[in-house]
Write a protein that binds this DNA or RNA. Structure first.
Lengths: 203, 203
DNA sequence: TAGATTGTTAATCGATTAACAATC
DNA sequence: TAGATTGTTAATCGATTAACAATC
């Protein structure tokens, strides 16, 4: 029913822009305002809004606060999102410290690592040993995991996550994971991004 | 002339898969072999190869080593790629330590930070103060920069990079940068990826 | 040769844009 | 009301797939 992976990304762009308009004192916006700034057609904005049930008004356009609230609701940012992190290396630490999550109700509620020098049940969030991963997921009904372990370790952790019935993985490992019916994956592969950039610069 | 941003990403998938086939003892592959494993049509593989001038043979398919070499050449991985890193926080450190770059001739030749506690001219790569950024870029003819500074700092650094005539930025800051004629940008926004995942899991 | 695969053209599919009737 | 914008339908554009002639 819904295939376009860019829709949610666009919704977030709209949201960011709406905050900026709001800070300028705007209360309402037209699809043209958003389209001009973002460099897309106003049809796309109206179509996206229409798709997600965001209503406008032929006289006054769209009410900024209403749209922002609706977008938060659509994504799920209106309610607390509990996410776990597997692999507390540099990337993992960067994510734990990232302030931006808090604004949108995303919380990394626990980290996991095989290295017992990194585990610490008292820290915030607690860093637990990987052996506790399965139990933690089922007990706390965790649905989304961020996978930031080194490449060679990833395969075994992925098996474990599948068994634990996790539903979404944000994958930072170089191994490209495929989504299935029960598990949605988004792969972030830095080398691929860099390769694209290097190619573009060359041409 | 060339707009499809997925082409290079696919080329890298092909390359990874070809290495796997090679490790199994294969010398040649057919477009069907690649297509089946990757879940795309064989037409796409042949079209991509054809687009980049990778030739096959109606009898024996494609010669693995030749294709791998050609792909490396197309992306630019056959020659040393000097990249700089701006912002030596957790993400920056993760990138410096990432082994995977070396296999493909990518080298982070210098890091930059405003924090003088982090600068160290003797380390490998050297971490220099941001004030030396512009000079370093022009002196060493750097074309690609990875931007991994905290959100609030990013705007000023971006100005500096533009002035320094950098041609490509891999942007980890939350600020979505737009490409221009002189500057290609790829944005990696972790919150956007996570939002997509949270939405997908909800639906 | 007969069979199978490449390379390419035509068809399809999906996403974005253009156009416009409905309506505030 | 007249004017302007939404919401939606039709047209366009681009990327992927299907089909098939060329050819090894």
């Amino acid at each position: 029913m819904f295939s376009d992976k860019e829709k949610i990304s666009r919704l977030l762009s709209y949201k960011n822009l709406l905050y900026r308009f709001k800070s300028l004192g705007f209360v309402r916006v037209f699809s043209d305002n958003l389209a001009d700034t973002l460099g897309v057609s106003s049809s796309l904005i109206r179509k996206d809004f229409s798709y997600f049930g965001i209503k406008g008004n032929q006289r006054g356009g769209y009410h900024i606060d209403t749209v922002i609230e609706k977008i938060q609701e659509i994504i799920g940012f209106n309610e607390a999102q509990k996410v776990i992190l597997i692999g507390v290396g540099h990337i993992g630490k960067a994510l734990i410290q990232y302030e931006g999550f808090r604004n949108d109700n995303i919380a990394i509620v626990a980290g996991f690592d095989i290295d017992r020098n990194k585990t610490n049940e008292k820290s915030n969030p607690p860093i637990l040993h990987t052996e506790k991963l399965g139990e933690y997921i089922s007990k706390n009904k965790i649905k989304v995991a961020i996978l930031a372990v080194p490449g060679p370790v990833s395969q075994s952790v992925i098996e474990l996550l599948r068994e634990s019935k996790i539903e979404g993985i944000l994958n930072f490992t170089p191994l490209k994971l495929k989504s299935t019916d029960n598990l949605v994956v988004r792969n972030i592969n830095i080398k691929v991004e860099l390769a694209n950039l290097i190619y573009s610069v060359k041409h």
